[in-house]
Simulated scan of single mutants.
Amino acid sequence: MANRYSYLSRNLWSGFLFGVGIVAFLDETLFHQLLHWHHFYDQSTTNVGLVSDGFFHAFSWFATIAGLFLFADLRRRQALWMKRWWGGILLGAGAFQLYDGIIQHKLMRIHQIRYVDHVIIYDIVWNVIALIMIIIGTVLLVQTRRKAKVETKV
């Protein structure tokens, strides 16, 4: 148990990378491929959009695999702290989704969630879900950080 306290940040980063990768993968699979709501880059031709989806898909898998390599290392060292790891996942997933919803959708306008008349409803749901993940992830991370401080002093 004491070993996991030495690896607080690695547990966080493993979960964070995994969370970013998984939410990006779900976004790309569900909204790009299955529902055809948008491409990663919608400001050009369909072919450019498909290529941009491919790069986005590769990014999501690189983040997922990096997170899993860190996860495997933590398990090998017997330093995995699942509650902290899940906090990292939720923080990473929420941070990526909020970045996507605010920066990519609204500021850069490289794509929208869906091209409909009342896109604001989709934007609100997208960003509120992101904020909920960020809040829950942050709570889990704060709880584990406090527990680590208390138990390492004893």
Rank of each mutant, 00 (worst) to 15 (best):
A2I: 08
N3S: 11
R4M: 10
N11H: 03
F18R: 02
G19S: 06
V20R: 00
V23A: 02
L26A: 13
D27M: 05
D27Y: 01
E28C: 10
T29E: 04
L30I: 15
F31P: 00
H32P: 00
Q33G: 03
L34N: 00
H38Q: 07
F40Q: 09
F40D: 06
D42M: 11
T45E: 10
T45M: 07
V48G: 08
V48H: 06
G49F: 00
V51N: 01
S52V: 00
D53V: 03
F56A: 15
H57N: 12
A58C: 02
F59T: 09
F59K: 04
F62P: 04
T64P: 08
T64L: 13
A66R: 03
G67P: 09
L70C: 02
L74W: 11
R77L: 15
K83S: 08
R84A: 05
W85R: 08
I89S: 05
G92H: 08
A93E: 04
G94P: 06
A95E: 07
D100A: 08
D100N: 05
I103M: 12
H105F: 02
M108Q: 11
R109P: 03
I110P: 01
I113L: 15
Y115W: 13
Y115E: 14
D117T: 12
V119A: 14
I124P: 01
N127T: 00
N127W: 03
V128K: 00
I129A: 12
I136S: 11
T138C: 07
V139C: 01
L140F: 15
Q143V: 09
T144L: 02
V150K: 13
V150N: 10
T152N: 11
